[in-house]
């Protein structure tokens, strides 16, 4: 069957091709390719300085790519930013809010950028969504980190965007709230919103439909979490009556049957332990194949 590329592009909320960006002598992005189908959650995972924030800022039209093509909902987010921005939401890395205003005042102010009427109803709805109804009149400077992050999320969501860019939304957030955040993100994706979420927390990639691993301005891998997981190697430990032996294999999915066959599973084998890597090990392996992997 011939793929209808035009139709595919229509279904992609975001397409990035050969995007590069330099800050003076430093290359922040060096030829990034990525497509994000509509209504999916894509996780951008990588160490500090990998280029995740630069990529998100290019996608929201706050920066212009030096080279390459960027399309958000079929439009160039820089040259057509006024149009694109009516349909996107952006939650910056730190909770960028007015500290001396209340939760309600902050969300209302950012809502008024996009909405001409019905602001109060939309604000009430989004405040309910992030579960801050009781705190709505509190000043941001008196909030906990998690409450500020929820306020920032609400400010990004209030105009009901089709595409949502979240730059490290769960940084500094306690595990329970992280879980709630991901449940909310999934609800949004189920309602048709496309989400691009950058994260430090590698275990969070299991919540994503696709994971893009970013290092040194490049997307090293772009796959579903299951595919990533199966690409990892592991250890096979075989206990025999005569003793135990351990074998390292490159890819559990591809090589495990062959390794077991080669070892000859005779009656002396008492037990076989197959240990796969954690998601963190898989990603660290992709980021740094030489085993450094400490920078995330």
């Amino acid at each position: 069957m011939v793929t209808d590329q035009g139709e595919q592009e229509m279904n992609d909320a975001i397409s990035i091709s050969g995007v590069s960006k330099r800050y003076g002598r430093i290359a922040a992005l060096s030829g990034v390719d990525l497509t994000v189908p509509a209504g999916t959650i894509v996780g951008l995972v990588g160490p500090n300085g990998a280029g995740k924030t630069t990529l998100i800022r290019i996608l929201v039209g706050a920066l212009r790519a030096d080279q390459g093509t960027v399309r958000v909902l079929g439009q160039d987010p820089f040259t057509n930013r006024r149009l694109v921005r009516t349909q996107i939401g952006y939650m910056p890395q730190a909770p960028v809010l007015y500290q001396d205003l209340t939760i309600g005042e902050n969300i209302t102010f950012f809502a008024r950028g996009h909405l001409n009427g019905g602001v109060a109803a939309k604000v009430a709805e989004v405040v309910r969504f992030v579960d801050l109804e009781e705190e709505i009149d509190r000043q941001v400077q008196s909030l906990s980190g998690g409450q500020a992050q929820r306020t920032s999320l609400a400010a990004a969501l209030v105009h009901e965007p089709n595409v949502l860019f979240l730059d490290e939304p769960t940084a500094g957030v306690d595990p329970e709230l992280r879980r709630t955040f991901w449940l909310r993100f999934r609800e949004l994706a189920d309602s048709g919103v496309t989400l691009v979420v950058s994260t430090h927390q590698m275990d969070e990639v299991v919540h994503c439909d696709r994971v893009a691993i970013v290092r040194s301005g490049l997307v090293l891998a772009d796959a579903a979490p299951k595919e990533l997981f199966s690409s990892g190697g592991g250890t096979v430990r075989i206990e025999k009556e005569t003793g135990s032996e351990q074998h390292h294999i490159g890819s559990l999915a591809d090589d495990l049957p062959r390794v077991l066959y080669d070892l000859g599973l005779d009656r002396s084998v008492k037990r076989i332990d197959v240990q796969g890597p954690t998601m963190e090990e898989v990603i660290l392996g992709l980021i740094d194949p030489n085993g450094g992997g400490h920078a995330v």
Binding site: R82, Y90, A94
Partner: peptide, 14 residues
């Protein structure tokens, strides 16, 4: 510096 200016722009202010 606080990046609220950038956020205003992204949220539609001109």
């Amino acid at each position: 510096v606080a990046e609220t200016l950038e956020r205003m722009f992204v949220n539609g202010y001109r």
